[in-house]
Design a protein around this nucleic acid. Structure first.
Lengths: 324, 324
DNA sequence: CTGAAAGCGCTTACAG
DNA sequence: CTGAAAGCGCTTACAG
């Protein structure tokens, strides 16, 4: 059986109140007593039970993180940064992979509430999930505006889409096509597409967007794109994984990159930079997103609602390399 | 203030004992009472406090996962699979990124103990961390044998190294060099190196290993390797990220892959397969590793120590593609 | 079929 | 400087 505070008290020959005081360094305790208690704790290998503490304090120092999938490099890196910052602040992280499924998101949210988390960081593209549980739980959303009451932190997707499209134009591409994720989910990628369309129209060009979805895989869509549009000479993909698949297919078809086809991706994770460094891409500041999200969540937790920024869109960076 | 079981009881006009019984579906309760209680819970938006439940039951359904870094695709995918399986079993996951640092691992372990986790899954290459806290906490190690008492689940690293080296030999490589991670950490990659050396020696060839470390980056090491050994025509990298960097550097030097240089990596994550599908690699069964690790941990938690396999090494698979 | 009481492991106001 | 008591939100053996 694990020792508890009474076991420590017995060994040290004091009351459990005193042990608790030593533990929390609270009130006056004689050095002698302190020593006795510390020795007793060590002797019986005592660790305080944070469950009991949390129950009393009504604060768990637990944060829930709901992301679609930590396998994706973007979310894997986001989870890493968020966890690191949480730990440095004394918070612990409960990880939840929702696969972007609303039913899972709701179940996770209920689980987090039952576990009394102090706050939740959520990356969801399903509006409305969070209204479901009417608890007034501190929440911050990443990447996507959910409701007036929920602060959102992300990066400047419109500017990213603009920068990407403009680069292809500057590089003399005549036939620029965009590949995006599911258009029905309200992902931030939709703003990238909007910027693409605006820039194209501004140039008097016709925007064309292909859509990758759970039903149509990256590979399928890209094959169709090349079949439909053999004239394509510039592709802006809404994430780096799609861009990588474009490069693979282009190679198969003997299309040289960047002379015959220029490709630009989106995200610029460390992983992709390591594996495919030649990919030109728009880099999101994942570490800053994590930092700002936790800053805001901490403020919500501490009840400082007055100086909270409700929408933060951090700047993105063009990383130019060999594929353009 | 969040409602508690007494609030529900008051609204429903019953005792809190009865509410608890309804909540746990335990003992006989009249349908009428059940209904009243459910209505009351809904009315005041009640969710049970799992902290209090856990405190009573001395079981939290919390699992701790300590990995080096969820940014790395291998660990990101491992975390994903572990979390998914945990959730399907009613466990919740506390994520810890140790950066392979022993001091962090120890702090995380203490945190997990204080939080009363039911068990811990740990990927560490620092022997001895776990002896530190002498709690008899259910633990399972992934990828690395830590002590007689701790079951380990991994894949067959020796066979992976053997398969990789043999492929390069079969493909007529004359000068095969191996690149490994830090040799002082007892990583599973060391077994891959051992297999490489054995196969090389068996062929009457001299094994040569270059070491990537926190001090010497992948890029640095690879540049040196090519400078030292312009004759190299086969490289076996102990992970896919190193293999990718080899490919990048080879391209810079105008060495054609696979005609002048053949490259094989290790891990075969979904991410790398998506971004660099032409990479030949040895694939680890990440999902099975996760599955078996949790199976074993569950058994430890339930106290079924009799039918636990203490060492499990799952088979790896050669994925042959364009780089060889 | 239902309730009062004790207890899970802590903490803190209150006394002394 | 130290201790007894009440309470955080639950659950369950025991009565009835």
């Amino acid at each position: 059986m694990k020792p508890n505070i009474h076991d420590v008290a017995k060994v040290a020959g004091v009351s459990s109140t005193t042990v608790s005081r030593v533990l929390n360094n609270r009130g006056y305790i004689s050095e002698k007593t302190k020593d006795k208690v510390y020795k007793a704790m060590e002797e019986i290998n005592y660790f305080p039970n944070d469950l009991a503490r949390s129950l009393f304090h009504k604060k768990t120092n637990l944060i829930g993180l709901i992301i679609p999938n930590s396998s994706n490099p973007f979310f894997g890196e986001l989870a890493f940064h968020i966890e690191s910052i949480c730990t440095s602040l004394g918070y612990k992280l409960l990880l939840c992979n929702s696969l972007n499924r609303m039913d899972k998101e709701e179940k996770y949210l209920e689980m987090l509430i039952r576990n009394q988390v102090d706050g939740v960081i959520v990356v969801t593209y399903n509006r409305g999930v969070l209204d479901y549980h009417k608890q007034n739980l501190p929440i911050v959303a990443i990447d996507h505006y959910l409701s007036e009451k929920i602060p959102v932190v992300g990066s400047d997707n419109y500017d990213g889409g603009k920068k990407a499209t403009e680069l292809l134009i500057k590089k003399q591409c005549e036939n620029i096509i965009h590949i995006n994720g599911p258009l029905d989910l309200e992902t931030p990628a939709n703003l990238r597409r909007k910027a693409y369309e605006d820039v194209m129209k501004g140039q008097g060009k016709l925007p064309i967007t292909y859509e990758v979805s759970p039903q149509k895989s990256r590979e399928e869509v890209i094959v169709k794109l090349f079949d439909d549009h053999p004239e394509v000479d510039g592709i802006f993909a809404s994430d780096d994984l799609i861009a990588a698949a474009v490069i693979t297919e282009a190679r198969k078809r003997g299309k040289d990159i960047p002379t015959q086809l220029k490709v630009i991706g989106y995200d610029g994770t460390e992983t992709v930079k390591a594996i495919l460094p030649e990919l030109t891409t728009i880099q999101q500041p994942i570490d800053s997103i994590a930092k700002v999200a936790i800053d805001i969540l901490s403020k919500e937790i501490e009840g400082e609602f007055n100086n909270i920024e409700f929408e933060t869109y951090l700047p993105v960076k063009l990383l130019e390399d060999g594929t353009t």
